[in-house]
Amino acid sequence: MTGQYLAFFIFALMAITGGVFMINLSRVIHMVLSIGLSFFGVAGLFIMLQAEFLAFVQVLIYAGAITIMMAMGTMMTQGGDEGEKPKRRLHNVLSFLSAVLVGAFLLYGIYTTSWPTEPTDLGANNIKEIGVTLFSNFVIPFELASILLLVALVGAIVLAKRDGEKD
């Protein structure tokens, strides 16, 4: 049991520290890398929840693709302005307050609700089950998701293409 708790704490700590670093670091590229740490932590939590497939997807898409893509985006949008920005003190205070309040509400809710304690066993090899369900019960959303990805692909290309290029 202690081993599980330890793993949970390590992963949770990874996820939260990653997020906190993202907020607090000063250079953009460091922020991007720290959020990668957070994504890894979440992947670890997924493994602990017997969602190995999702954990891999998480690592591949988030920790891999999105983090790298954002890092590339950071490089592409470098330069420009790092000058003194107008301070938005009120904005920041209100943002902090609302974030804390939202978190407090959620935690309060979690704390006061009595959750079922017994975990359901989803099977050691639930990847197959995911595949079967996805292609039987959720086939239409699945296809819609693929269309969404295609549209996103086309849209991203159109948006990012230089204006002058006409072909």
Binding site: H91, L94, S95, S98, A99, L101, V102, F105
Partner: peptide
């Protein structure tokens, strides 16, 4: 921010 403040007030 306004949206989330609204949410907070709602909650």
């Amino acid at each position: 921010l306004v949206t989330i403040l609204g949410l907070v007030i709602l909650l």
